[in-house]
Design a protein around this nucleic acid. Structure first.
Length: 311
RNA sequence: GGGGGUGUACUCAAGCAGUCAACGAGGGCAGACUGUAAAUCUGCUGGCCUUGUGCCUACGUAGGUGCAAAUCCUACCGCCCCCA
């Protein structure tokens, strides 16, 4: 029985400032690849310095996808990402090149490479605004009435999640389908179809010693502050991105904008941003740690060694 | 020199006799995560262990009064403010 040749995809994950972009570039050169960014903030135009976005020059001719594809005034969410990335994977493969997915947004990456079924229910702003007025307890009570399965597992205090669950139930008339841990990482057995083609994934996790990571986070932040991070945020605001929206982007954009409209001092801004990035890196690791399929590496050499062996 | 205030866990800060190993916030540590995911949310945070209506050590220091004190009294030490 003739089978189509299996496509190969390299995935590079890791926390903020761990050096994913550099590693991806090296690997891309080596395997003739193109890079697909999986970063929930780098998709936005005008958010460059604060997101650590690679510059055109730094790309060294390697194509990078899914950068600067959305306006910071509009939403670009997992669902958009999954569809766009799948399309890019097909295109890149057709060109005879290797897709390399690189990013720190664990949720997006897993939705893509493990083909998580994101419910086909888009955001309903009116409904969200209405539900937002209720307390978490009230939301949970409502959810329990219509959704007996998922409601049990959802965090009773997390309004955002409760509202989303209610949103899905309201539109589909059905509760949110449950999936367990085994499903999360094993149901596709490291490979599945995208656009009729079967793919296998090699997932690399970049992990630096804690001290080194923290040092890199710090020096990177100082460098960005020197090279116009605040100017960038000011520009975004002038172009119509609200302080509230900037706040919701988190990290540099959150504390930078709080400083720019005088909620906090400059020193507080630097300090709080630095702390927030460290916490974020921690949260990223918490996410990645539970994935048993990640091959953890400390540097580029280990990566190339693994590639030779497994790819 | 006279008068007033204040000293609480890593930090800020409540408590002002019993229900206090001590509210709350920050920080730290750990975790969750099904169309906002750099977001959102949860737990723990004096020590010890047999993890318990358990033991020990603790609210500037030293004494004292109470059955009982972070809480009251005395002295001392440090800091702050006002008058001289």
């Amino acid at each position: 029985m003739a089978r189509k040749a299996k496509g190969k995809i390299i995935v590079i994950v890791g926390p903020n400032a761990s050096g994913k972009s550099d590693l991806a570039l090296k690997i891309a050169k080596k395997v003739n690849g193109e890079i697909i960014s999986a970063d929930s903030r780098q998709v936005y135009r005008g958010m460059d310095i604060g997101t650590g976005k690679i510059t055109r020059k730094e790309m060294l001719g390697v194509p990078h996808h899914l950068l600067d594809i959305a306006s910071p005034k509009s939403d670009f969410n997992v669902s958009h990402f999954k569809k766009s990335a799948q399309k890019k994977i097909v295109e890149i493969t057709k060109r005879g090149k290797v897709p390399i997915i690189v990013g720190g947004t664990g949720f997006w990456i897993d939705a893509l490479i493990y083909d998580w079924p994101i419910p086909e229910v888009g955001p309903n702003r009116a409904l969200r605004a209405r539900l937002e007025k209720l307390t978490a307890m009230q939301l949970f009570a409502r959810l329990q009435k219509i959704d007996t399965g998922h409601a049990k597992n959802i965090d009773h205090h997390n309004k955002r999640r409760l509202i989303r669950a209610l949103e899905i139930a309201a539109t589909t008339g059905k509760p949110v389908p449950e999936f367990n841990f085994a499903y999360k990482y094993n149901h596709v057995n490291k490979q599945h179809e995208i656009g009729g083609q079967e793919y296998g994934f090699l997932v690399l996790g970049l992990k630096l010693p804690q001290k080194e990571l923290v040092r890199k986070i710090h020096s990177r932040l100082l460098k960005w502050l020197k090279t116009g991070m605040l100017k960038e945020i000011k520009k975004l605001h002038r172009s119509g991105v609200s302080w509230k929206r900037l706040d919701s982007f988190g990290l540099e954009y959150r504390y930078g904008s709080r400083y720019l409209h005088n909620l906090i001092s400059y020193d507080e801004m630097v300090d709080q941003t630095y702390r927030a990035i460290r916490k974020y890196a921690k949260r990223q690791m918490t996410w990645f740690k539970r994935n048993p399929q990640i091959h953890w590496i400390k540097n580029q050499n280990e990566a190339t060694g693994l590639l030779k062996k497994l790819f």
